[in-house]
Design a protein around this nucleic acid. Sequence first.
DNA 1: ATGAAAGCGCTAACAC
DNA 2: GTGTTAGCGCTTTCAT
Lengths: 360, 360
Amino acid sequence: MGAQNPYKAAGIRTRRATMNDVAAQANVSLKTVSRVVNGDAGVVEETRLRVLDAIARLGFRRNDSARQLRTGRTAEIGLLVEDVADPFYSTVTRAVEQVAAGNDCLLFTSSCDDDPVRERKLALTLCSRRVDGLLIVTAAPDHAYLASELAAGLPVVFVDRPPVNLDADAVLTDNVGGARSGIRHLIAGGHRRIGFLGDDPDVFTAQQRLLGYRQEMAAHGLPVDESWIAAGEPAPGRLRHNVERLRVELDRLLGGPAAVTALFTGNNRITTQVLREFGRREDSDRGTLRRPALVGFDDFEFADLVTPGVTVVAQDPAGLGRTAATLLFQRLAGLAGPARQVVLPTRLIVRGSGEQPPPD
Amino acid sequence: MGAQNPYKAAGIRTRRATMNDVAAQANVSLKTVSRVVNGDAGVVEETRLRVLDAIARLGFRRNDSARQLRTGRTAEIGLLVEDVADPFYSTVTRAVEQVAAGNDCLLFTSSCDDDPVRERKLALTLCSRRVDGLLIVTAAPDHAYLASELAAGLPVVFVDRPPVNLDADAVLTDNVGGARSGIRHLIAGGHRRIGFLGDDPDVFTAQQRLLGYRQEMAAHGLPVDESWIAAGEPAPGRLRHNVERLRVELDRLLGGPAAVTALFTGNNRITTQVLREFGRREDSDRGTLRRPALVGFDDFEFADLVTPGVTVVAQDPAGLGRTAATLLFQRLAGLAGPARQVVLPTRLIVRGSGEQPPPD
DNA sequence: ATGAAAGCGCTAACAC
DNA sequence: GTGTTAGCGCTTTCAT
């Protein structure tokens, strides 16, 4: 508890003790220090204690940059997502973290905001850092730039969205099947006019979910009016980011004589924004508004807390992260062979909003 | 698009090109390659192009481990939180990420699950990695083990909870003031019997919020019956993690002749769990249950989507992360002087649940 | 404008 | 059980 300022001025970064310093202090060789630090066998207890004492006295801490340079392995992996603050991605991140920790690996995380340029820059920076592996929820339209890294032996696993122009592992959700199960549920409930509120098809998952919608409608011989589909536009026009735009589309789908009786929302952010809109309308309409049936893709923490509960096609973000990270470490452990594609199933969770029957 | 397997078998990690290889290929010296790679001035365009060409041909990528060893800086910082999957921490993380990115720094993130042993191990591992700085949401009861790192010049900033036995920067929320504002609001609404559902005082923030509750009650001359306080027990008994226990406490506070008319919940997980319990009871009681007034500490995404909306004392998790990270980079930029403590204000957000009047 | 030499702190390989 | 030597791939310093 000295009265010293704890924070040094610029550049006054004290030189840290090295193994050499410890060796001198303990009167042993550098190599013996290395053995003690790494817990290698073959050091007699007395020597070990002397070294440990010197380490404590000098405040020595092994410099992993040097170790990494020598061994070629960093015991670090990187994870790129769209936005860690999004519950979907934070859950993926947490699962990846856990697998990484189980393999004594540290994790770099970065949010790319669906910006391909940023994604590429970050991925390559991580390559320069010589991470042992890379996990990517990609927004880029092309991944050929990673080919040389893959060829150099870097395992890369794509999460939630597959790679383009690159032969690499991917762990995905069954987006088509999931969307179909949601639409099937609405059709079984008597709905024929079902609206789709999703993101632009630039986003792989959005495109797949829209495909599932079309497939299931077709499978039941139901025509689809293109006006029932609101898929937003790229980047700033994405419905999940653009509340104004979503409001306009919702008005369009629910208003007029061609109004839909049910809504399928393509991701958790659109679902919650739609709920917010419903709430707002009911406040002003004083209960005259009849909510359409609603099924959302992706579960969310409060889906059971609102009234009615929100029926969803649940994904398994933790499973996505866990599976992808596990595959990555299998690759690191030597698993050879062609790129794998793992597809995780979805699960329909019935809570009330999707069971609202059509009017009349 | 060769038919080659993209994933090599164990150990067949191709040797990567070094600056030396590039130098040979381009017929220049190692140093010139270094200049080109780092964008240093003083390389004639023609040479530069030759080097760039060699880099592309060899698939060279600078090895940052070597660079870090030489320069002593990693351009990496570490962040330790309780759980990235928790919206509060994922928001903190996102803010830190943004500041880090703005300073061309990568970010290590790790969840410690409020386990002091894990926290210490991770912090020291990050020190071995020679991160340029450390941000910690701590669960440890003592931080003296970081003293030597701080002394060696490593900037450490504590987030949300202050350090113990260590003189280091901290960025905190005004927990006492925030709790007081919430209690004051309930008192102004006519409540006298106000319950407190929080976590055990091992958690700094929980302890401070309980203190705020007591202070505000006292300031109004209101007696506090200790049976109104449910503060759980350490670790596995924490109300935010133990639904059973929370249910029992809630029954106790709301039942009997001494029932409270209002509830103050100490964090977002307790608040949402209480809402879930309310929902469950209303389902079985068929509307005979009268909800107590409710004010929660910490805002959450769906606080406005449930009915009634949840009145909260909002913290600013993004501000916490941003402020802490910014301070860290100021330290890195040479800001000297004594440890600072920054306290961020809270904001009461009125939404309905807290304005329910007491019965009769 | 370019290059040569030294060395960051560690581990690998091989003595003794 | 312990030590010696070499070198990982860069940047720094100083020549030319």
